[in-house]
Design a protein around this nucleic acid. Sequence first.
DNA 1: GTACACTACATGCATCCGCATCTAATGCAA
DNA 2: TTGCATTAGATGCGGATGCATGTAGTGTAC
Lengths: 123, 123
Amino acid sequence: MVGTWHYVLAKHAKAMCSLERELGDKHGLGPSEFEVLDRIVHHDKKLRIQELCDEVHLSQSALSRVVARLEKAQLVSRGVCDQDRRGVFVCITEAGRARHKEALPTQRAVLADIFADAPVLVR
Amino acid sequence: MVGTWHYVLAKHAKAMCSLERELGDKHGLGPSEFEVLDRIVHHDKKLRIQELCDEVHLSQSALSRVVARLEKAQLVSRGVCDQDRRGVFVCITEAGRARHKEALPTQRAVLADIFADAPVLVR
DNA sequence: GTACACTACATGCATCCGCATCTAATGCAA
DNA sequence: TTGCATTAGATGCGGATGCATGTAGTGTAC
């Protein structure tokens, strides 16, 4: 219980730190930016902000800003949703897809390194 | 691998959020404050800042500020180390010990709730 | 149609964090 | 002793986050 918490805390800290450095230096992405990009690529369709909000571990306000940063970097584009004009859909650009593709191996390498000695999760 | 990372990410986000709310509302402590307090109580002796730094998942600067906040709240006291006058040792006060004692069950309850369905960690 | 409650997203604000840097103390070499 | 590299901890600063709130669009009751 407490042991599991310490494990989560330690791995999270290490991984976040490495991801921030590696993704930042090599691809100009923060962990949150990558996570959002990754979710969009995974779905491979126009996504409402709210759909993203359910999958990403960010508050709605933080997500709004991450998307704004991604848009400024031309990695995604935002558009008004026609069915519900309050809504905003996010669409990945070619540049965004390319950036994600080049960053993915970096992320995988970091995780492989950090979770190399990871215990297996068994129910 | 990636699955483990998602697990860590999800549990960390949930736990941090709950801890911040519960510890904050009921005991006026942030998660970092509690973690530092907990480490000090666990060692039960004067600790150098640097020793704490190795155990807590915070940068040296963040730790310095957490200790400053705890001192302002009278939960710990800081003193100059005699052997090495650059060093600072941190000592828990009676109020600090009491606060920790009353907050510990709250933390345990949050963790128990969040890790109730936790998979067992097996090598 | 009007009024009002509700929802989706954006934004002001305060807080916390990490990095870089600063200060003061230590220690070693010349 | 003097000079300089190193270390412990504090602090300035920029950036990211969450909460509360603002703004605009939706839907429902009347």
